[in-house]
Amino acid sequence: MKQILVLWPSFLVAGIAEMVFFTVMDPQQLYLFGQPVDFSPIATYSIGFFGFWLVCAASSLLTMFFLRPGEEINRAAAGPR
């Protein structure tokens, strides 16, 4: 159930980030490692969305990781008793 706490907000933010990014940038004028991107616009939008989603999910996952209380972290580090 914790996956939904990471994936759903990151999905929404990735959608917003993609709309903002591709409002400013034309997918046919993007360059990757000095070479023009030769994908169709739909493929570029899809790859961009999944890239944004991955970055946003990593951010949400790190937030959930750092929200753990110190007792839980110390208990896990001590091992089973």
Rank of each mutant, 00 (worst) to 15 (best):
M1L: 13
M1I: 14
K2S: 15
Q3K: 08
Q3F: 10
Q3N: 07
Q3V: 13
I4P: 01
I4H: 09
I4V: 15
I4D: 08
V6G: 00
V6M: 09
V6P: 00
L7T: 08
L7D: 11
W8A: 15
P9T: 05
S10K: 00
S10R: 01
S10Y: 06
S10C: 09
F11R: 06
L12C: 13
V13A: 05
V13L: 12
A14Q: 00
A14F: 00
I16A: 09
I16Y: 06
A17W: 02
A17K: 02
E18H: 05
E18W: 03
E18A: 07
M19N: 14
V20E: 05
F21D: 05
F21E: 01
F21L: 12
T23Y: 10
T23E: 03
T23M: 09
T23I: 04
V24T: 12
V24R: 10
M25E: 13
P27M: 03
P27K: 02
Q28M: 13
Q28S: 15
Q28D: 09
Q29L: 15
L30C: 08
L30G: 05
Y31N: 12
L32E: 07
F33W: 14
G34I: 02
G34K: 04
Q35W: 08
Q35K: 12
P36M: 02
V37F: 01
V37H: 03
D38K: 13
D38P: 00
D38I: 11
F39E: 05
F39N: 06
F39R: 03
F39H: 06
P41R: 11
P41Y: 12
I42G: 05
I42L: 14
I42T: 12
A43V: 09
A43S: 14
T44D: 10
T44W: 03
Y45W: 11
Y45C: 02
Y45D: 00
Y45R: 07
Y45Q: 04
Y45E: 01
I47H: 01
G48H: 05
G48D: 02
G48R: 03
G48L: 09
F49Y: 14
F49R: 10
F49D: 02
F50I: 05
F50L: 14
G51Y: 02
G51W: 01
G51H: 01
G51T: 11
G51K: 01
G51D: 04
G51E: 01
F52M: 11
F52A: 07
F52D: 00
W53S: 02
W53Q: 05
W53T: 04
L54T: 15
V55W: 02
V55I: 15
C56H: 01
S59K: 05
S59Y: 06
S60G: 09
L61V: 07
L61W: 04
L62Q: 06
L62E: 02
L62A: 09
L62V: 08
T63Y: 10
T63K: 08
M64H: 14
F66P: 06
F66H: 13
F66C: 07
L67N: 07
L67A: 11
R68S: 09
P69N: 15
P69F: 11
P69Q: 11
E72H: 11
E72K: 13
E72Q: 12
I73D: 01
N74I: 07
R75M: 07
R75F: 14
A76C: 04
A76P: 00
A76L: 12
A77R: 14
A78R: 13
A78D: 12
P80W: 08
P80G: 11
R81V: 08
R81M: 06
R81E: 06
